[in-house]
Write a protein that binds this DNA or RNA. Structure first.
Lengths: 345, 345
DNA sequence: CCCATCTGTGTAATCGATTCCACAAGGAGG
DNA sequence: CCTCCTTGTGGAATCGATTACACAGATGGG
């Protein structure tokens, strides 16, 4: 592969001049410039990003450590992050932690070793020493979706409180009184917050959230299945199950289906995180939708601001409730759909 | 951030010795080794991967250019690729081409500039000059899922022929005779092959695949919706729609639902690529399942073999049919489920 | 006792870029 | 005509690692 020396030789100039042309430094003669450009063309030269990074101490790369690539929420987040980063001249390296703190550390360490310019993290746990050290060492960092309390790092996230209140209002309006939640790991902020928001919303209706109705999940489908089975085995099972993420909702659907029960007739279901498939599940699932794309973009903007020495503030955007049929009768005033539909066919 | 010089100073040895300890070169005294290790510890030293890469001309990084991160198939592929790569001591940088040749080129160029050790590509098109140049220049490369004919690069993919034959047999057995397909882009091998496999399987039953029943999609949901609307507008609409990927199947579901029609009563649906949500859609969707995880792992093994100078062969694994209810009555001999279910509740 | 061999270590070249500094040539002003 | 600037260019240091080579000191065989 051709190096800057080859280009210099071909153009009959020094490497310094080639470098100046490539970084369009002002003091280069028109003549030298065209000769260099021609040499670049004939040799098919591309600057070595590794060498450049070593010298300039910048990689123009952001690291993104997410908790689970198989979760459509994070996948969408990753996509918007990459898009915004590309628009700002940065590349993104994604690390998938699979909700495992050790894997998360592996990726953080790897990204740091590669001297990425900044780190976007959705922490799987309360913060490993490694990550705290990185913050202390001054690595530009931004938390997205989840964060670690007590660490001075901007946080970009959605506030689901209002949407969860709307959800509980909706459920209460449908006559449901025994509401249960499949919680995320207590080590994550989203794991705790969603339970808290749910509990607060319930108490506004004088409803309680007994321990038996708080199932401990880990944001993965299997845990949703397991917890839901536990709920169904209770002497008095809940009337509604609220899954704190979409994968646990999937697991809950699996469990309900395995018992030959039906949603929402036998048990209602709602989920945090809206995904496209929820429109077509049986039944369509009521969910709290986050402005995922906007979160990703805001996170990148905040991180790049930090990298370039500007402030870079935290951002909180509201989530909103999307009502579908998984909690009971159709929400709006339209007549029940099924009979109408059949007559159409 | 501490460099190897700082470690050398702290340990009272030369940088060469530090390097030797770090790469456990045999000829280092036990004394020097412990002093270096202690210095590494106190300084929290981590080798600079950028500098190391420049010197050794290896980045221990693979590039993966996929067509669409939002497609669960590719997401799963990416995950297995990263896992296997990690097991073999490599990191992965993912580039999302979004089915756009220009973006694909952007990522290939970017990855090449970063001097990745090898490239895993699922090409969006017939092969840009850039990619062909890279192959010619000797960049270790492996195609996964899709490939470019006439290019000497190992291909790791699934063969769906048998599964598509099974699908057509299943559909024929259910009495369907007018079968349509939502094809992928003709520029992709999977786009063409799936249509061909479908046509061949049909002809075995004396069935024809008229042009009106071949809709041109682009592997994205919107195109699935658009094509399906076209099918439904036909004077004689098909009885079955086979979507060449899961996102177009999602679009098809959207279109059918928007018309107030039902699957499979009004029109049957099948898809290439099985995803977890197909179990819970209304109705559960019959699909051709690829051994995605195994494909990803095999692709990485082939690529790493090439990188390390070993042969690295092509791999073709069979896909298989997963029958659900979206094409008509339950496949097995069990009695119809719905009434039984209701009685359980 | 001498020379060959082996061990452990340091010096310095190297990878491919960027950039400081020196300097030559040319133009402007006195 | 001499100085002072400006402009364009090249030489060389530098980033942080790896590694070829030289070499000092210890060891061992004849």
């Amino acid at each position: 592969m051709a190096s800057i020396k080859d280009v210099a030789a071909e153009a009959g100039v020094s490497v310094a001049t080639v470098s100046r042309v490539l970084n369009d430094h002002p003091s280069v003669s028109a003549d030298a410039r065209t000769r260099v450009l021609a040499a670049v063309e004939t040799l098919g030269y591309r600057p070595n990003a590794v060498a450049r990074s070593l010298r300039t101490d910048q990689t123009h790369t952001l690291g993104l450590v997410i908790s689970d690539v198989l979760n459509p929420y994070f996948t969408e987040l990753a996509r918007s992050v990459e898009e915004e980063a590309r628009a700002l001249g940065y590349s993104v390296i994604i690390g998938n932690a699979d909700e495992r703190p050790d894997l998360q550390d592996h990726h953080v360490r790897n990204l740091l070793d590669r001297r990425i310019d900044g780190l976007l993290v959705s922490p799987t746990d309360g913060g490993s020493p490694l990550m705290l050290d990185a913050v202390r060492a001054g690595t530009p960092m931004v938390f997205v979706d989840r964060w670690i309390p007590g660490v001075d790092v901007p946080v970009v996230r959605a506030d689901g409180r209002a949407a969860v209140r709307d959800l509980v209002a909706h459920l209460h309006g449908l006559g449901h009184r025994r509401l249960a939640i499949i919680a995320g790991p207590a080590a994550t902020t989203t794991g705790r917050e969603r339970v808290e928001a749910f509990r607060e919303a319930l108490s506004a209706y004088g409803l309680d959230l007994p321990d038996a109705y708080i199932g401990q999940g880990d944001f993965q489908a299997d845990s949703g299945r397991r917890v839901t089975e536990g709920f169904l085995d209770l002497p008095e099972p809940p009337e509604v199950v609220f899954a704190a993420d979409n994968l646990m909702a999937l697991g809950a659907l699996d469990a309900v289906r395995a018992r030959g029960l039906r949603v929402p007739d036998d048990i209602a279901l709602a989920a945090f995180d809206d995904i496209r498939w929820f429109v077509h599940t049986d039944p369509p699932v009521t969910a709290v939708a986050q402005p995922t794309g906007e979160l990703g973009r805001a996170a990148v903007r905040a991180l790049v601001a930090r990298i370039e020495g500007r402030p870079g503030e935290s951002v909180t955007l509201p989530a909103r409730l999307v009502v579908r049929r998984s909690c009971g009768e159709a929400p709006s005033a339209v007549p029940p759909l099924s009979p109408v539909r059949r007559s159409t066919s």
